[in-house]
């Protein structure tokens, strides 16, 4: 008689996480996706009917703003990710190789410190620094270096600066763990075989840290493309992203169905980019399925 297989205890430990995932991601996303195919709220409006008009509205974009908003969202996400990686990687490498425990703890605290204040507060802090009457422009004008304020805010530049500040810790913390697990002796072996410091890094450390680069980049990219507060406050009239449009549709146009369609579009496009990025990095590192 066959014995029924029982789920392992580990599977039971995963249950709370799975439940949370279903309750707070799968279910809301399912409702949002369903709403995006209705003309109204089918729960409160018996006349609501199935339709694809919200997707048609996005695809044909007669208003001429939706495709721009999507491209703007992805561009800001990509730039923020690349800049965060360029800033975060050297810092993470330095932290991972630091011998002093005290030094490591101090740097770690410095990296984490920005995360202890809210995003709104941090964004307002950047506004006081970058606005026309802000710290930088006031100093530059007072010192006679420029005659009129530099356009540091109310544009993509200011938005990316604030987003990078907010999301660099995520990149650093992800990379530090991965780089810390790379055996330093591999790099030393490469150098003892004649490779210079740069070559040893490029051919040994960098490929081995690709999983960290992938994880950190995906995290920062996902957070950047879904950012709402920072682009709203820092972008002025120059920046319009999909999360801003979604908030407009829900909060002021009271059209949750079209907002749902925009949410689905953003998720699908992001997933496509993530899959492509994963494949490219896997090919570069000679492995398959890094993520």
């Amino acid at each position: 008689m066959a014995v029924a297989s029982r789920p392992s205890p580990i599977a039971w430990l995963l249950a709370p996480a799975l439940l949370l995932f279903v309750l707070f991601f799968v279910l809301p996303f399912g409702v949002m996706a369903m709403m995006s195919f209705y003309s109204g709220n089918p729960v409160t409006n018996p006349n609501a009917f199935l339709t694809t008009r919200h997707y048609e509205r996005f695809i044909f974009d007669t208003a001429g703003i939706f495709h721009d908003a999507l491209w703007s969202t992805l561009r800001i996400g990509l730039i923020t990710t690349v800049v965060s990686l360029l800033i975060g990687y050297p810092l993470a490498h330095w932290m991972a190789r630091m011998q002093s425990r005290l030094g490591h703890a101090l740097v770690l605290m410095a990296v984490i410190a920005p995360m202890l204040t809210g995003i709104v507060v941090r964004t307002f802090a950047w506004m006081t620094i970058l606005q026309d009457k802000g710290v930088i422009n006031t100093l530059l004008i007072d010192w006679g270096i420029v005659s009129k304020p530099l356009p540091l805010m109310y544009n993509e530049f200011g938005t990316v600066v604030a987003l990078v500040h907010i999301y660099v810790p995520f990149m650093v913390l992800t990379l530090t763990g991965v780089i810390g697990r790379i055996d330093e002796r591999l790099e030393q072996a490469a150098r003892s075989l004649g490779a210079g410091r740069l070559r040893a890094f490029v051919e040994v450390t960098l490929p081995l840290s690709l999983p960290g680069i992938l994880a950190g980049s995906l995290l920062v990219f996902a957070l950047s493309i879904s950012a709402y507060v920072t682009p709203s406050l820092m972008g002025g009239t120059d920046v319009l992203t999909l999360p801003m449009l979604i908030a407009q549709q829900v909060g002021t146009s009271f059209n949750p169905n079209f907002a749902g369609a925009l949410g689905v579009v953003l998720l699908l496009v992001s997933l496509a980019i993530v899959v492509a990025y994963n494949r490219i990095l896997a090919r570069l590192s000679g492995e398959q399925g890094l993520a």
Partner: peptide, 12 residues
């Protein structure tokens, strides 16, 4: 705030 989306989502 905003209140209207919440009212929209509740039964009439």
């Amino acid at each position: 705030f905003p209140y209207v989306p919440k009212l929209q989502a509740s039964p009439k």
